[in-house]
Design a protein around this nucleic acid. Structure first.
Lengths: 233, 233
DNA sequence: CGACCATTTGATATGGATCAAGCGATGTGG
DNA sequence: CCACATCGCTTGATCCATATCAAATGGTCG
């Protein structure tokens, strides 16, 4: 369990700004002072596996930075289906992207440690310090870009979505082409707008064409990134 | 849904005299000074029908506020398909949501007048005036929310997508339940991740169940909003 | 070991895509 | 002013990717 944390447990992510895979460098470097702000001001909190961090339509009072573990945000549609808003990994900040009222709930996927600060503390700070305001803006812009990419993903075929998902995860939580997935197939399916069966079949498909290996269901080895990139469209 | 930035200050109300449905008031009122900034500083520009305003991967140097007309942003996928990023109507600001390099192109759908300001002018202003920075942040947050809604739309059925699209357009460009669509069926299809045939069939379907009327292809009369809301999920 | 849950695999159904044709506006030249 | 070409839209017939329903497998924990 917590295989995800395991891959970086030796070196706490928050003190390691660089990664072993080429990560989009621009997106990492900029929000240091905001991140450090949370580092200094944040109250540590623990959430066991599958527990709620905040509920839909609660006031969006707090901002969270993940220390270890993993979080999913989601909404339940009127027909009962669940749409995953996003996955958050160590180092990620979440809570900012919601308006005064959440329309999402957040849950710990695995045992998760976060640092929590009042949203008002950050926006107040931004009022006094324009550079913090700029970072808030940048962070939101980046989240926006991710959403745009996600929209692109959602109009593609199942194979393209799964390949895109794997590449996205690889950029964020990958060591030696081994991606440790903290989330279940159901989580992935609800994130990609597919069914678990389709996700599973697609993964076995990718395995048969030697693009990936799936030694255990939560561990994916990327064997052929260029093939994945090709499938990604 | 429609990834746009709906700012309508009193100043530009005159350009949308047809609007008579109550627009979400909270989202309009806040960023007046930003909108008025563009109003004062902006250079007027005209784009004929179907001409490019900016191209993909040009530096994101400018921010635009629409005076009249309509704009679509889009990307071309590697397989040649086109994904529409959003539609922008009079009063809307666009260009902010792109990072240093656009990944989108923008085109005038109809003859369009815009006001243009340098992006740097706004961010510079934000550096000096925290309230402008806050408005930039708010604007981006709102855009983010629309993207989230759009993602929800994209995992639904064709009927739900089209119904959702109509309701969204009705909120933005509707008089007496008559929605005038500036964009073609192909634009709508590329926005919703459907084909023109499916969009067309779905519209006739909605007409048969008396939810809408389609007197001309670009004009939709909403006959039964609650039915549409129900279909929207 | 046995129960339980997540995941994979198999068989069938279906919504939307694709291919193809028809229709109705709008514009152009004779 | 009318034949005719063009373009955007609708309608029809068929196909295919993914959903759905159902069962088997495997991993985990008591």
């Amino acid at each position: 369990m917590l295989s995800h944390t395991a891959i970086r447990s030796n070196v706490d992510r928050q003190f390691v700004p660089t990664r072993n895979v080429a990560p989009d460098p621009a997106s990492k470097a900029r929000d240091n002072s905001l991140g450090q702000c949370i580092q200094l001001m944040g109250a540590p909190m623990n959430y066991p596996r599958n527990t709620e961090i905040f509920g839909e339509d609660e006031p969006a009072e707090y901002v969270y930075k993940i220390v270890s573990g993993a979080v999913r945000t989601y909404r339940i549609l009127s027909d009962g289906r669940r749409q995953i808003g996003g996955f958050y990994l160590p180092g990620d900040i979440f809570g900012l992207q919601f308006e005064d009222e959440h329309s999402f709930s957040a849950e710990a996927i695995t045992e998760t440690k976060v640092l929590v600060v009042k949203r008002s503390a950050l926006t107040g700070l931004a009022g006094r310090d324009a550079s913090v305001g700029k970072e808030l803006f940048n962070l939101t812009s980046r989240e926006l870009r991710r959403m745009q990419d996600r929209i692109l993903l959602l109009v593609k075929s199942a194979q393209e979505r799964v390949a895109g998902f794997l590449l996205e995860m690889a950029e964020r939580a990958c060591a030696n082409n081994i991606v440790e997935l903290p989330m279940s197939r159901q989580d992935i399916a609800d994130y990609l707008g597919l069914t678990i069966e389709t996700v599973s079949r697609t993964l076995t498909g990718l395995e048969t064409v030697a693009a990936i290996e799936v030694p255990t269901s939560r561990r994916i080895v990327l064997r052929n990134r260029s093939a994945l990139n090709r499938l990604n469209g």
